[in-house]
């Protein structure tokens, strides 16, 4: 297994692992790819940190689909205008 030394503040994973780590983090990796990527990340500090941060970031991005909690709404005037446009569509 090809490993890189940890270089402190670097965010970048081993170049040949980037795609596999992305797929592992977002859940689109095949089982085989995921096993390989996780095994590599467990031994490679750079890739381990990258995978952990990427997984956490994707979790936060998913939560953004319902945040901010305060709902945004169209106002009633905009809804009235929409209803008029709906009526035009009906012809």
């Amino acid at each position: 297994m090809k490993l890189h030394k940890d270089s402190g503040d670097s965010l970048e994973p081993c170049p040949h692992m980037e795609s596999m780590l992305n797929q592992t983090a977002d859940g689109t990796a095949s089982k085989l790819v995921e096993i390989y990527a996780r095994a590599h990340a467990a031994r490679c500090p750079r890739c381990g940190t990258f995978l952990a941060r990427l997984t956490a970031m994707l979790g936060k991005l998913r939560r953004m689909s319902t945040e901010p909690a305060e709902p945004e709404k169209l106002d009633e005037k905009q809804w009235e205008s929409l209803e008029a446009r709906f009526a035009e569509v009906e012809g």
């Binding site: 503040d9 965010l11 970048e12 980037e18 795609s19 992305n22 977002d26 990258f50 952990a52 941060r53 990427l54 956490a56 970031m57 994707l58 936060k60």
Partner: peptide
């Protein structure tokens, strides 16, 4: 889509690090 996502995620991590906000990813 895959390549744009990979570049975008790396860019976002870099921006978060540059804002000294990596702790939000713990």
């Amino acid at each position: 889509v895959r390549s744009r996502l990979a570049r975008a995620r790396m860019q976002m991590l870099t921006v978060i690090r540059d804002m000294n906000q990596l702790e939000v990813l713990v």
